[in-house]
Design a protein around this nucleic acid. Structure first.
Length: 492
RNA sequence: CGGGGUGUAGCGUAGCCCGGUUAUCGCGCCACGUUUGGGACGUGGAGGCCGCAGGUUCGAAUCCUGCCACCCCGACCA
C-alpha cells in the first residue's frame, strides 16, 4: 500500500498531481505552465509515439518537419483559425539581447533588434504548412499529400495541469491535401478510426467516436471528429481530434491544382492530432489509490524481476535464475527489468513498482529455488500467486494479455455505469450533479441552446456520436424537435 | 485575468497573529553495524539566500509594498 497517498474519492486533482509526481512521470519546470517530462513518463510517451507512428505509416503517411515560428501575416491568413488561437499565442518580437548597463551581469532586450514582422510560436501548424503546400501542388498528380509531423506547440493557457493542459506540449499533427472532398472526408474518418483503435487496443481506454457541434469545432474546420473518453471522476476528456478542413486553408493560401478535366480547383484538406494529453488520459483511466496502473501495451517495462536473498551466495543463485527468465521472456518480445540493486530491500522495491504501475512483478527467492516455484503479482488486481516455474513464459504472456483486456473491460464497465439518458432538463441537471458522466440527451441543434446549457450547468456537448441511431425526441432545453441524442458532460 | 489559499533543507511541516539566543519535527540523504519473502533498526553526521526584490526597525521567517510560482474556485480553453 502506498503511504500518505491521497484517495481518488477524497481529492481527485490532488490524487492526479501526486501520481504524476510520485510515479516520476513529469514535474513543473522553471518555466510557467511548462513541464519537464521525466524519463519514466517519456518512455510511456515514446511507446505511444512508436505505435501511432507505425499506424500512420501503414496507412500511407510520412513524417516531415515544419518550422516552430509562423510569420504573423501567414498566421492571420485563415481568419477563423487565427481568431480562434489569437488569445493564446506566444509572440517573438526581437532577435537579440544586449548587456544591461544599469544592471551588470544582466541582459535586456535590444530594442534595435526588433523584428519587422512578429513571429508566432505555432499553436498549430496549418498556416505554415499550407503556405508550403502551395509550392508543392500544381496538378492532381501531386495529390494526395499525406504528411505527419511530431512536434511541440505552444498555447498560452491560463491554468495548466501536467499533461492535461500545459503551455507547451508535444503532439503529432497530420496535414493532408486531397483532390476531392470525399477523399478528404474519408481521410479524416480513417484517422479517427486509428485514434479510436489506438486508444482501445493500446491504452485500454474505451472511447466514443463522434463529431463536434459548431461551437466546439476546431477553428477553421468544417467538421471536427473526435474521440471522447470518460475519466474516473465522471468528467469527459477529449482524447484526439481529426478535422475536415474543406477548402478553407487552400483558399486562404491560394492552393489550387489542375484536375483531370483540366480545370482549376482548390485543394481539400484534413488535419488531425493527439498530444501528451493522452498521458493524462491514461493515468486517469486506470490508476487507483495505490498509484499508477499501466496497460501492458504501453508500459515502459511489462515485467519487473526482483531477487530476494540474504547472503551473497543466495543473491548469485537467485539472480542467475532471474537472468535466465529474463532472456526467455525477452525472446518472446516481453520487456523486462531486472532490479538487482542491493541498495534497496525487496519490500521497498515492491512498493516502488506498484506505485509506478508495472503490470507484472515477479519475485524469486531461495525458497523458490528449492521448491521450483516463483511469485507473480499483477498490478491491476493486486493479486499475488506462487506458481510453478515451468512454462513461466507462457504464463506471463497470458497474464499480460489478461491484464490488458481486464483494464479495458473495467474502464468500459465504469463508463457504462456512468452513462445515462436524460429526457427532461431537471433529470439532466440531477444526473450531472449527483453522478456526472456521459448524458445522452436530445438537443435542438442550435448554438444558443448549447450555450445556455453550458452557462447554467457547465456541461458541454462532447460530441454527436457517430454510431447512435436516429431517434425522434424533444430538446431537453427548448422542447423543439430533435432527431438524435447527443452526448453531454462536464469536460477537462 | 478576478476571488480565495500556499510558499521555511530533496519532500512534508512547526514557528508568523504578538519581531529578539544557534529556525522545529518527521521522512529522505551520507557513514558504520545489524538486517533483507510487502516501504527495516540502532548510533553518528551532513544539509537552510525562511519564494524573489525593496521598505520599516537597533534587530525581520515574523510587519509593510511590489513581484514570481504553485494549489482551489471562476473566466478562458478545438
Amino acid at each position: 500500500m502506498a503511504k500518505d497517498f491521497p484517495k481518488r474519492s477524497e481529492d481527485y486533482s490532488q490524487w492526479y498531481n501526486e501520481i504524476v509526481n510520485r510515479a516520476d512521470l513529469a514535474e513543473h519546470s522553471a518555466v510557467r505552465g511548462c513541464m519537464v517530462i521525466k524519463p519514466y513518463g517519456y518512455a510511456i510517451w515514446e511507446k505511444m509515439q512508436a505505435q501511432l507512428d507505425k499506424m500512420f505509416k501503414e496507412t500511407g503517411h510520412t513524417n516531415a518537419y515544419f518550422p516552430l515560428f509562423v510569420p504573423k501575416s501567414l498566421f492571420e491568413a485563415e481568419e477563423k483559425n487565427a481568431e480562434g488561437f489569437a488569445k493564446e499565442c506566444a509572440v517573438v518580437t526581437h532577435y537579440r539581447l544586449k548587456n544591461d548597463e544599469d544592471n551588470p551581469g544582466k541582459l535586456k532586450v535590444d530594442e534595435n533588434a526588433k523584428l519587422e514582422e512578429e513571429l508566432i510560436v505555432r499553436p498549430t501548424s496549418e498556416a505554415i504548412i499550407w503556405k508550403t503546400y502551395k509550392g508543392w501542388i500544381q496538378s492532381y498528380r501531386d495529390l494526395p499529400i499525406l504528411v505527419n509531423q511530431w512536434a511541440n506547440v505552444v498555447r498560452w493557457e491560463m491554468r495548466t495541469r501536467l499533461f492535461l493542459r500545459t503551455a507547451e506540449f508535444l503532439w503529432q499533427e497530420g496535414h493532408t491535401a486531397h483532390a476531392t472532398k470525399k477523399e478528404a472526408i474519408d481521410e479524416t474518418k480513417m484517422i479517427l478510426d486509428i485514434y479510436a483503435d489506438f486508444a482501445q487496443r493500446f491504452m485500454a481506454m474505451p472511447v466514443i467516436k463522434g463529431v463536434k457541434s459548431e461551437t466546439e469545432r476546431f477553428a477553421g474546420a468544417l467538421d471536427t471528429y473526435c474521440i471522447e473518453a470518460l475519466m474516473q471522476d465522471g468528467k469527459a476528456l477529449q482524447a484526439g481530434t481529426s478535422h475536415f478542413l474543406g477548402q478553407n486553408f487552400a483558399k486562404a493560401f491560394d492552393v489550387k491544382f489542375t484536375n483531370k478535366e483540366g480545370k482549376q480547383d482548390y485543394v481539400w484538406a484534413s488535419s488531425w492530432g493527439v498530444s501528451t494529453r493522452l498521458m493524462g488520459a491514461l493515468i486517469m483511466t486506470h490508476s487507483d489509490d495505490n498509484g499508477l496502473v499501466l496497460p501492458p501495451n504501453l508500459a515502459p517495462f511489462q515485467v519487473v524481476l526482483i531477487p530476494i536473498y540474504r547472503k551473497e551466495e543466495e543473491f548469485e543463485k537467485v539472480v542467475e535464475k532471474l537472468k535466465e527468465i529474463k532472456t526467455q521472456l525477452e525472446a518472446k518480445g516481453i520487456s523486462v527489468k531486472l532490479d538487482d540493486r542491493d541498495t534497496h530491500k525487496p519490500g521497498w522495491k515492491f512498493a516502488e513498482y506498484e506505485f509506478k504501475g508495472v503490470p507484472l512483478r515477479i519475485a524469486l527467492g531461495p525458497r523458490d529455488l528449492e521448491s521450483g516455484t516463483i511469485e507473480i503479482a499483477r498490478r491491476d488486481t493486486l493479486e499475488k500467486h506462487s506458481l510453478d516455474q515451468s512454462d513461466i513464459v507462457t504464463k506471463v504472456e497470458h497474464l499480460l494479455e489478461n491484464i490488458q483486456s481486464n483494464l479495458y473491460n473495467k474502464a468500459a464497465d465504469y463508463r457504462e455505469e456512468m452513462t445515462h439518458k436524460a429526457d427532461t432538463y431537471d433529470e439532466f441537471k440531477n444526473i450531472l450533479e449527483e453522478k456526472g458522466g456521459f448524458i445522452y440527451a436530445h438537443w435542438d441543434g442550435t448554438s444558443e441552446t448549447e450555450e445556455q446549457i453550458k452557462q447554467e450547468t457547465k456541461a458541454t456537448i462532447r460530441c454527436i456520436p457517430l454510431d447512435s441511431k436516429l431517434e425522434e425526441g424533444k430538446c431537453i432545453y427548448s422542447g423543439k424537435l430533435s432527431k438524435q441524442r447527443v452526448i453531454f458532460a462536464k469536460a477537462y
